[in-house]
Each structure stands twice: as structure tokens, then as C-alpha cells.
């Protein structure tokens, strides 16, 4: 009895400690984004929104925010589209060398982003392609396409085959089968792939850093802010991104995944 209680106390204490470790930096980040003073470290001088005002007044930061959204959305749409088409072809048709094709499509997942970025950078340089948001987007599709392909391919179960056959039997061509039957049936995993892609692209640094020049994404802009050392403005933009992401996450959790659970 005593051993059970002590084991239970130990568990909860461990849980509390690790949670404290996990939340410590985030809590500090958010708390000192409201710092009334120039240093985001103790002591806390008082509550102020001045750094948030500074963030919204920063043209470059806001432009980077917009760039990040565009790159994340466009590259994710491309990744999901290409991934879906490839998954459909490889799951539903017998193609020669399909194992090799799957391997090739998955391969970029096993290579560090730094190496992917470096490879693309050297090729773009050799071909004299100017660096831009487009080259960043190309890189982000390279890292997100394997993910989207893998998620959608894994969800194309054999139990869907007859449903697609039925559609074809009733006169639907391939595009109609995909648009009206396959994609709606796989919508949960397609959306999961899409949002995961958006998250990865939104948060990606090294590819965006090496493959952009004048227009940069948010992580790259924040990176350059770090040169000024500890700065409550960095706390403010970091907190904003965090809180916005958590809000999106909660909305998704409540609407999308709540609905699929019911079905």
C-alpha cells in the first residue's frame, strides 16, 4: 500500500518536473514579451504592450510574415497535389518499378534539410537562377512532398478500391473518380498532410535562409533580429507565432478532428 502511494507520488512528481522543463522557456518567452523595459530577463518591471506595437510597426517583419504564409500555402498545395496524384497512381495501378518509385519519392525525408538546401543552392548558382521566394518554395516542396505522399499513400486502403471501381463502373473517368470519390473519402489524411506541410514550411529555417535573398520568410527575419541579442521584441513576435499556432491547432482539434471521430 505504502509502496503504491510512493510510486504514485513519484510519478506525479516526475510528470510535474518534466512539464516544468518543457514549459519553462515558453513561459519565460511569453512573460517577458510584456516586459516594460529593454531586457527580456528578470526582474519583471511591469506589464507593457510596447513590444507588440513595435512588432506590428515593423514593416520588414510584417512582410516576412506575409511571405511565410504565401510560401507555406503555395508549397503545401503543390506538395499535397503531387503527393496525392502519385499515391493514387502507385496504390491503384501496377507500374513497373513501383517499389523504386516509392523509395525515390520518400528519399528526401532521410536527408538533412541542410544538405537539401546546399544541393539546391549549388545547382541554382550553377544555373544562374536568382534566389527568391520561389526557390524557397521549391525547396519546401522537396521536403514536404515525401511527407504528403507517405501520409496519403498509407491511407489509400484496399477497402476503397471497390468504391472507386463502382464510380468508374457508373461512368466516372479518372479525374472524376479522384475529385468526387477518392479525395473526399481521404479528406482527413489529405488535410492532415496539408496542415503538417504548412507547419513544416512555416517553421523551416535553413532552406529559407540559404535559398532566399531580398524577400525572406519569418524565421529568417527573426534570425536576423537575434543579432541584436536579447530583445523583448523577439519575445513578442515569438509569442505571437506561438499563440497563433496554438489557436489554429485548437480550432483544428475541435472542428476537423472532432468531426472525423464522430463519423
Amino acid at each position: 500500500m505504502l509502496r503504491q502511494i510512493s510510486a504514485s507520488v513519484l510519478s506525479w512528481a516526475y510528470l510535474a518536473l518534466v512539464y516544468a522543463f518543457i514549459f519553462l522557456p515558453v513561459a519565460v518567452l511569453v512573460l517577458f514579451s510584456f516586459q516594460d523595459g529593454r531586457l527580456p530577463v528578470p526582474p519583471f518591471n511591469g506589464f507593457s504592450l510596447q513590444w507588440y506595437e513595435a512588432v506590428f510597426a515593423d514593416r520588414k517583419l510584417m512582410a516576412a510574415l506575409g511571405n511565410s504564409m504565401v510560401v507555406a500555402l503555395v508549397s503545401s498545395v503543390i506538395s499535397v497535389l503531387l503527393g496525392f496524384l502519385a499515391a493514387y497512381a502507385l496504390a491503384r495501378y501496377k507500374l513497373p518499378g513501383s517499389a523504386l518509385q516509392r523509395g525515390l519519392l520518400i528519399a528526401p525525408m532521410t536527408v538533412s534539410y541542410l544538405i537539401i538546401a546546399l544541393g539546391l543552392l549549388s545547382l541554382m548558382n550553377a544555373l544562374h537562377v536568382p534566389l527568391s521566394l520561389m526557390t524557397v518554395g521549391i525547396g519546401h516542396v522537396v521536403i514536404n512532398l515525401p511527407l504528403c505522399f507517405a501520409i496519403i499513400y498509407a491511407s489509400m486502403g484496399d477497402h476503397h478500391i471497390n468504391i472507386e471501381r463502382a464510380a468508374r463502373d457508373l461512368g466516372a473517368n479518372d479525374f472524376k473518380v479522384m475529385a468526387l470519390v477518392t479525395a473526399p473519402m481521404l479528406m482527413p489524411s489529405i488535410l492532415a498532410a496539408f496542415f503538417l506541410s504548412v507547419t513544416f514550411s512555416w517553421d523551416e529555417f535553413i532552406i529559407a535562409f540559404l535559398l532566399s535573398r531580398f524577400d525572406v520568410t519569418l524565421p529568417v527575419e527573426i534570425w536576423s533580429m537575434l543579432r541584436s541579442g536579447l530583445n523583448p521584441k523577439t519575445n513578442a513576435i515569438g509569442s505571437l507565432v506561438f499563440l497563433a499556432s496554438v489557436a489554429v491547432l485548437l480550432i483544428l482539434e475541435l472542428s476537423l478532428f472532432g468531426r472525423t471521430k464522430k463519423q
Binding site: 512539464y19 522557456p25 515558453v26 518567452l29 523551416e204 519575445n235 506561438f242 499556432s245
Partner: peptide, 21 residues
């Protein structure tokens, strides 16, 4: 969800916030 919530701090910001600590 709580255990992985700080995942959603931006990657660069996550390291920066350790600097604060």
C-alpha cells in the same frame, strides 16, 4: 497535447527562449 505544445513555438524562437533562461 500539453506535453508537445511548445513544439509550436517557432523553431528559431525556441532556441532563443532558452537563451533567456
Amino acid at each position: 497535447i500539453l506535453a508537445i505544445l511548445p513544439f509550436w513555438t517557432s523553431y528559431v524562437v525556441r532556441s532563443y527562449s532558452w537563451l533567456l533562461v
